[in-house]
Amino acid sequence: MDTDIMTKAAWLKNLLLDRLQLIAHNKTEMARLDLAGRIYATAHYREGKYLYLIYPKTKDEVRVRQYIGADPKRVEEALAKIQNAKKYEELADQTRQIEAELTLDSYQLGEICRRVERLAPLDLVTESARAGEDPSPDGDKALEPGAGLVTTSINRNVSAEVPLKQMPLSTW
């Protein structure tokens, strides 16, 4: 069971890092799309060759139409900007969804940390057990202050000659 928990924790760490990288990638891509230009309009062709952009109605119920024409360069640029707007919104939606899920996950992980903290006496928690730090330079040794020999969760005997400074987990 101990190794199962550690495997899940390592998997969760990698999954969270992946999601954070995806958020960073999305924001970078959104900035690029913003610089390239976005048009929030619908393309409409008259007579099959003249492009018009039809923008959404405004507060005043005015629908703006913009004539682009048949120039291939202008048509391509306008259509690319419409695609940029669609892609931007997709990325923004995905990013908002991931950020919302991560906010919820952060709360739930905090609850898990508080539950686990209540399981063990605080005098077994050392300053080296802070989030993101290895408990000791050579692995996952758990030291009990003043003890000469300690058995860790993976049943390794660890020598504890110098006790480490203690800190409660609730300071995370």
Rank of each mutant, 00 (worst) to 15 (best):
D140T: 07
E99W: 10
L102R: 06
L104S: 14
A142R: 05
P121R: 11
E133D: 11
T152P: 02
E127T: 06
V158M: 06
N157Q: 14
L119C: 14
K141W: 04
S159D: 07
E89N: 08
W172G: 12
L164V: 11
N155K: 13
S136N: 12
G139R: 03
A131C: 09
L124V: 07
L104N: 12
L104K: 14
C113N: 15
A92F: 12
L169P: 03
E133T: 05
D123V: 02
E127Y: 05
L109W: 05
L119Q: 13
W172P: 06
T152F: 04
C113D: 15
E90F: 02
T152H: 05
R156S: 03
Y107H: 15
T171E: 15
I154W: 12
R156K: 13
S136K: 10
E89Q: 11
E90Q: 07
E161K: 09
P137M: 02
D105W: 11
P121C: 07
G146P: 04
M167P: 00
T171Y: 10
A100F: 12
G139E: 01
E89G: 04
L104T: 15
A92K: 12
R96D: 15
I154S: 15
S159M: 07
S106A: 15
P168K: 02
G148C: 01
K165T: 12
E144M: 11
L149H: 00
